[in-house]
Design a protein around this nucleic acid. Structure first.
Lengths: 214, 214
DNA sequence: GTCGGATTTGACCAACTGGTCAAAGTCAAG
DNA sequence: CTTGACTTTGACCAGTTGGTCAAATCCGAC
């Protein structure tokens, strides 16, 4: 891998107001990058693949992002926010059981609608999250801490059957993202039946039994 | 990537009874391959890395396995069997609830004891399982079909609260493997507390509430 | 229409990677 | 201690890949 010189070289689009072309191409690149990175992981993806998928030549792509790494991190930070929206929407003032069940369904819906995003994160985290640790230990950690406290409050108030709030959150991520991340496996084993047909009811039942107070 | 000629070339160890050295080196290679492939995925791993980790030179390693691909598939097929043991051990004649709970704990134990194996499979499946589809749709599918039927029987007999057997099995895989596959994330969010301290009780509670008949 | 900045690209490059080969070193059975 | 099979390795090779550069082309504001 050639070391990055970044001394002279092309000007690279100013961070002034992006032109029409810049907006279009950056979007195309990120969309292509999502497609390719989610399917092959960071190392398995090639810049050429992404460029072709985006309808650009490789040097042209490198004109918009200085490196493969830069594309990847731009993509991650663009998506992480959206990815956490369902949890952010958990309302401390709502009805506890319904809030939890709604969260589960929102998260499941995300897996169905955005499987590539799910797999992008899965790929990265399984391999030790070398490019995400920062975000995990700040943004995500704060959010989880906050919502775990809310859930803990609900349990103490007898609104939810008690259990370990953080493990509960992990379980929701795990169960919902499984349908996106392990899609091939799940579909292979389900045969003709679409996993997403029965999944919503299954998870609703699961968490209702788990959380409905006595 | 140079095309594979495999016409003439080294004799490659006979499939006769392996010598002492062959046994040692093959084992070292597979152990090294597990370490490297599970951490970086197939494409992210290099033959050099595996060779170094195994304490061999690259050509020496290539003397025992004809290609990177061959190492990988040898590893997969060696591990898949063990990986499915916990499910295989589900006893149709046992006490249903206890059988299910015991299965969950066995699977969780596997994630704790063999996280690299879990991540190896996770990496492969997230990327579409190009080298595992065969095994998934035969061995695994048969096993799941069989055990799902057993579980269905238990539910019909009122021994377990009813739900979707296959989704139930997926949920067990998902929840237990999550602790291995997403280890970095889970540990980051749990802070000092070891996830595996509370996980057994959490999952026991979870499935007890889910499955205990009325 | 023209002009300067924004875009695009063909030709390259160096590092990396999977794999090959012939020669050299080792080992164990006779 | 020989000898033939088993192991090991240094030197290579070709294809891939991330990234660079100078020159050419395009575009929109004046």
């Amino acid at each position: 891998m050639p070391r990055q010189s970044r001394t002279k070289n092309a000007p690279m689009p100013k961070d002034r107001s992006p032109t029409r072309i810049q907006k279009k191409n950056r979007a195309a690149i990120l969309e292509a990058a999502l497609e390719v990175f989610s399917a092959h992981g960071f190392r398995g993806a090639t810049v050429d693949q992404i460029a072709t998928e985006a309808g650009l030549s490789k040097p042209n792509l490198l004109y918009y992002f200085p490196s493969k790494e830069a594309i990847f991190t731009a993509l991650l930070s663009e998506l992480l926010d959206t990815w956490l929206d369902p949890l952010r929407a958990l309302d401390p003032d709502g009805e506890p059981l319904e809030e939890m069940l709604a969260y589960v369904q929102r998260k499941l819906q995300m897996s169905q609608d955005f499987p590539r995003e799910s797999r992008l994160f899965a790929n990265e985290i399984v391999q030790g999250a070398p490019r995400m640790l920062e975000a995990l230990s700040t943004d995500l950690k704060d959010l989880v801490e906050e919502k775990a406290t809310v859930i803990d409050g609900w349990m103490s108030a007898g609104k939810l059957k008690p259990s370990h709030p953080k493990h509960l959150i992990f379980s929701i991520w795990s169960l919902t993202q499984h349908y996106a991340d392990f899609d091939v496996q799940v579909r292979t084993l389900m045969g003709k039946e679409d996993p997403f047909d029965a999944a919503p009811a299954f998870l609703d039942t699961f968490y209702r039994r788990m959380l409905t107070p006595a």
